[in-house]
């Protein structure tokens, strides 16, 4: 029994953290809010350079040959900086199915209805009737939808011609792709929540009212303590689900759903309390806070909402013996 990460896994996390601090500071997220494709200038290339976008691709096929357990902490970092890129869709979902060499990819699996960044990638992996199809850019028929998070360029995705689509998986690949997406999304939500907590703790130490830092008021302390507790009891579920996926545990879908529900609830609480503890400055779009909150609101239901995931757990533990 050992429930901890290896030094290599932590080192990969640290390397990605360091890179993202440079490539994706809050100002970069802010630019993505207004630019043409909602993405960063160079973070994608930097991730490509580090190999993490093809991390799940076998080494023989040009990838890093890593697994979800190696990548789950990277997802957290992606969330922490609110990276506006199709990281989960490309690295955890599409590349793991089709391998490298297809350019950048987005993905649309499970109950998710919209494809993120579908107009600025080279291909989109879609689930259709228990099959996975890779649709190349020229075959995509897209209609823009606007997300509360303006960095998330969302589209309904259809495809026009058979030539542009390749069948790349069946029912099991669909199920596994969805589980990886939901798990990656949960880890991203944990990272978003951690950032919301960190900046709020910092803000509460520097903002003074009644002659004292607002962070000394118990009402605020208890709210942020609750966020810390929610994170403490979301992370282990996320890490265990990553472990289960990495070893093809028979219960991996249930484990993914447990962590998806818990992480979404933790992030939602973090967003709510972060705003309340900031007061009006948190309500202003001149503060960075809103970009993290809106990402949480977008992602907390992105790959199955908490009720959907709880129901999936319910079917496994309440209805069967």
């Amino acid at each position: 029994m050992r429930f901890a990460f290896t030094t290599d896994q932590l080192a990969l996390r640290d390397a990605v953290r360091e890179m993202l601090a440079k490539e994706c500071p809050p100002s970069e997220v802010r630019s993505a809010w207004a630019n043409a494709n909602g993405r960063t200038a160079s973070a994608w290339d930097a991730l490509t350079g580090m190999g993490v976008l093809d991390a799940l691709v076998p080494e023989a096929a040009g990838g890093l040959g890593l697994n979800m357990l190696d990548l789950v902490l990277v997802c957290e970092e992606v969330g922490r900086v609110a990276l506006p890129e199709p990281f989960v869709e490309h690295a955890l979902v599409a590349a793991a199915v089709v391998g490298s060499g297809h350019g950048s990819m987005s993905a649309l699996v499970g109950p998710a209805a919209l494809g993120v960044y579908a107009d600025s990638v080279d291909a989109v992996l879609v689930e259709d009737d228990d099959r996975l199809l890779l649709v190349a850019r020229e075959g995509l028929v897209l209609e823009r939808q606007s997300s509360v998070d303006h960095t998330r360029h969302l589209f309904t995705v259809d495809w026009s011609s058979a030539e542009a689509t390749t069948e790349v998986g069946g029912p099991q690949e669909c199920a596994d792709a969805f589980d990886r997406a939901a798990l990656g999304n949960a880890a991203v939500l944990v990272g978003l929540a951690q950032h919301l907590l960190d900046v709020t703790v910092d803000y509460a130490a520097t903002r003074n009212q009644f002659g004292v830092p607002i962070g000394s008021f118990q009402a605020l302390k208890h709210k942020l303590a609750d966020v810390r507790i929610a994170l403490e009891f979301a992370r282990p579920l996320v890490y265990r689900a990553a472990h289960s996926v990495s070893i093809d545990d028979i219960d991996r879908s249930v484990h993914v759903s447990m962590c998806a529900a818990q992480a979404a609830d933790a992030a939602s609480l973090a967003a709510r309390h972060a705003l309340q503890c900031h007061g009006a400055i948190g309500y202003s779009d001149e503060s960075d806070l809103h970009m993290w909150m809106k990402r949480v609101w977008a992602l907390q239901r992105a790959y199955g909402d908490p009720a959907w995931h709880r129901e999936r757990v319910a079917r496994a533990i309440l209805d069967e013996d």
Partner: peptide
């Protein structure tokens, strides 16, 4: 209540796993 029961199971599992992490850390 169906989901309250499920949430209880999820929370207990979270506590069990958090304890495994703690015991691992103590061992380290």
């Amino acid at each position: 209540l169906r989901h309250a029961v499920v949430q209880a199971v999820i929370d207990v599992e979270a506590y069990r796993l958090q304890t495994l992490a703690t015991v691992t850390a103590i061992g380290d």
